[in-house]
Write a protein that binds this DNA or RNA. Structure first.
Lengths: 146, 146
DNA sequence: CCGTATCCAACTAGATACTG
DNA sequence: CAGTATCTAGTTGGATACGG
């Protein structure tokens, strides 16, 4: 195609977009990304999904396994929400003392694939992000905070 | 066999785990999923990334394009954070009036692939989740506080 | 046009105590 | 053991006004 000629409107000339820019059809409607994020974006849901990905867990087991120490209240809320979403199945055994088991549903398991992808990306780019942080902080230590 | 009598130890018998249960090596350390989620889990970051996936945008363009109407404050905070993370590149043109352009970095573009995966999952499972919600609500409209 | 600063409302999450 | 209820602290996000 013809070389650069009239880039009147914007100072930027090259689109630079290397990839096919995959996203979605309707930028105005957030395509549904928000849905998943509203589900996993909270503080604990991911931990529960990750732990449950390894198998069936009881309430207390779940609580102990989750790093950071989740409170009973938050674990209950999180697990209830996941159950309502159909990602987790809750089974109550009418024993004494009571026993409740949690496990991922099929849909819940399919989510673990996404979580895995997220983790992979995170680990792969962690050094780059850390470097970017340092560069930014260095460049802004005078004008920014303090 | 015997009726509900002594199911003391563990009522669950079969592991039921169909998939290879892919997640990560260290369940105790959240594997790094939290990192990405802390980045995308907020209210606006994803919208910015999605919009920027289509090309270079100016501040005002970004603000107008984002559904729901983001405030200047939040757009600034969001975009600054993404810049610090190395996902977005910010270019200032010393013109009058000032002009600032935002675009995804290479790393930012790689993130759009994840966002796409998230969107796909969301759209694919949206009906199932909605159905689950309805079922749950119906089953709990009596015992739960509406 | 592109922000920054300040104040304030809303939501989220923790600690604690109590129930079945 | 597995929750529920209540109260409170911390964080997030919006509105507005002002500055470069």
């Amino acid at each position: 195609m013809s070389a650069g000629h009239t880039a009147v409107t914007s100072p930027a000339t090259a689109p630079v977009v290397a990839e096919p820019v995959i996203v979605c059809d309707t930028p105005q409607d957030e395509c549904g990304v928000r849905d998943v994020l509203d589900r996993l974006g909270d503080k604990w849901s991911v931990y529960v999904v990750v732990e449950l990905a390894s198998g069936i867990r009881r309430f207390k087991e779940l609580q102990r396994a989750i790093p950071g120490g989740i409170s009973q209240r938050m674990l209950t809320l999180t697990v209830r929400r996941l159950e309502r979403d159909g990602l987790v199945k809750r089974t109550v055994f009418p024993t004494v003392p009571p026993q409740v088991e949690y496990e991922l549903t099929e849909m819940g398991h399919s989510l673990t694939h996404l979580v895995k992808a997220l983790a992979d990306w995170s680990i792969a780019h962690r050094p780059a992000i850390a470097a970017s942080h340092e560069a930014w902080d260095t460049a802004h230590q005078d004008s920014d905070a303090r």
